[in-house]
């Protein structure tokens, strides 16, 4: 991993069109500004981890074969 020291208002470039600016530093929190082309998606890493955990939870439950049939009844028009 590349490690760079930066001060407030300094930035780094990733490739030639993504810029990450250190906007503010307070205690253990850093506020970052990200300038990137619209096609580049930016998310907090926790979001990725949360979805990954939920995917794992979804396939981990060994529910009984009848379960889906029972659950399907809830969708039938009353």
């Amino acid at each position: 991993m590349l490690v760079l020291a930066r001060r407030t208002n300094e930035s780094i470039m990733i490739g030639d069109d993504i810029e990450i600016v250190v906007i503010d530093i307070k205690g253990d929190q850093v506020k970052l500004g990200i300038k990137a082309p619209k096609k580049v998606t930016v998310h907090r890493k926790e979001i990725f981890d949360e979805i990954k955990q939920e995917n794992i939870a979804a396939i981990s439950t060994p529910f009984k074969p009848d379960t889906l049939r029972d659950l399907s009844d809830f969708f039938k028009k009353k």
Partner: peptide, 18 residues
């Protein structure tokens, strides 16, 4: 994607974030 709890399947949840 739906997560179905083993003990209480009717508490099933849907992942709308992903």
């Amino acid at each position: 994607i739906v997560t179905i709890p083993l003990e209480n399947p009717s508490e099933m949840t849907a992942n709308l974030m992903g």
